[in-house]
Design a protein around this nucleic acid. Structure first.
Length: 318
DNA sequence: CTTTAGACGAAGTATTA
DNA sequence: TAATAATTCGTCTAAAG
């Protein structure tokens, strides 16, 4: 596919000099009317996103299907549905049921293709706008946004977004991107900011995983530790302690089938107590998006099956 | 009054036949 | 596809601090 140049981890590190994300050209023109940036080389339209005002302008491609548009108003998404957003049926007959002449057929065919393309464009831009809205509220990094956008674009190209709420698909893309970056977030945390039900979002996640044929590493408890710890203002020492606990839990074989974020929560809870930076179960449960009950159960298991007395020594000896 | 602990059925998930 | 097992959730009760 034509997106082949930028693979799974987004396109590049967040950089502020202007460069086309698609072809790398530095010749970026500014459309004074719309405020859009256009790559003069490949015609890519780069919009700053409309909803938030973070310092980053970020880059999403609405074009890569047709590689022209070097002059005049770039064929932006706005231009796409001018007056012709009707659907065109796929039958070979006209309104009276008569068969169409070959030349007519060819003409209609071209119309249909054009029509489909504009629809693709529309769902793309809608989705990317929504994606950016959610990402802003979650304050995720730009790299992650781009990865999410890439996932979303692939989904649209493969027609996977049909039948699902735009917001659900966008949320799912962010969720999966965060997994790719090994900075997973609990699904519920993302759902909170999406205009869709948890059910729909997880449905979209499944669809994407299945149809996109891409490896989305499963979150492990350890991946959650830094984020949770930061939100709880726990020191790096406590983090190391928690990770050590998780290592042992894994060796003890009590992690299988358990919710990773619940596990991370409990480990931090124990580590906090051991290290003298205690947080309540309530606090921890909140940032981990699990219930206190879950924190308790995991915590009980950890203290029961693990010998935790020597952990401090073990850690300081490292 | 807050935190912790435990019990119960409901609900969503993963595994197996 | 349907049944089964394991897990988490929500809510309630109660003890401890």
């Amino acid at each position: 596919m034509s997106t082949g140049t930028n693979e799974k981890n987004g396109m590049r590190e967040g950089r502020e000099d202007l460069k086309c994300p698609e072809c790398g050209s530095k010749e970026i023109l500014r459309d004074p009317v719309r405020g859009e940036l256009i790559c003069s080389n490949c015609g890519l339209v780069i919009t700053d996103h409309l909803v938030d005002m973070g310092p980053e302008w970020r880059a999403f491609t609405h074009e890569e299907l047709e590689k022209r548009a070097r002059v005049g108003a770039p064929s932006s998404f706005r231009f796409a549905d001018k007056g012709l957003s009707t659907t065109i049926s796929w039958s070979d007959r006209d309104a009276h049921g008569r068969k169409l002449s070959p030349s007519k057929r060819a003409q209609i065919y071209r119309l249909r293709r054009w029509n489909v393309r504009t629809m693709v464009k529309r769902s793309l831009t809608d989705g990317l706008i929504e994606l950016n809205r959610i990402a802003s509220q979650l304050s995720v990094s730009n790299e992650l946004r781009e990865t999410a956008a890439l996932i979303y674009r692939k989904a649209v190209e493969k027609r996977l977004t049909r039948g699902y709420p735009v917001s659900a698909m966008a949320a799912a893309a962010i969720y999966l991107a965060s997994r790719l970056h090994r900075i997973p977030r609990p699904l519920d945390e993302i759902v909170e900011h999406a205009k869709a039900s948890r059910k729909d979002v997880s449905k979209c996640v499944r669809v994407l995983i299945r149809k996109l044929q891409q490896d989305f590493p499963r979150p492990t408890a350890k991946h959650f530790v830094p984020r949770f710890a930061a939100e709880l203002n726990l020191s790096p020492y406590i983090q190391r302690l928690a990770i050590e606990i998780l290592d042992r839990a894994e060796k003890a074989g009590i992690t299988a089938g358990k919710d990773p974020s619940g596990l991370a929560a409990a480990a931090l809870y124990v580590a906090g107590i051991l290290g003298g930076e205690r947080r309540t179960q309530r606090q921890i449960a909140e940032v981990a998006h699990v219930t206190e009950v879950t924190v308790r159960n995991r915590y009980k298991e950890l203290t029961k099956k693990l010998n935790l007395k020597d952990i401090r020594n073990l850690l300081s000896s490292k």
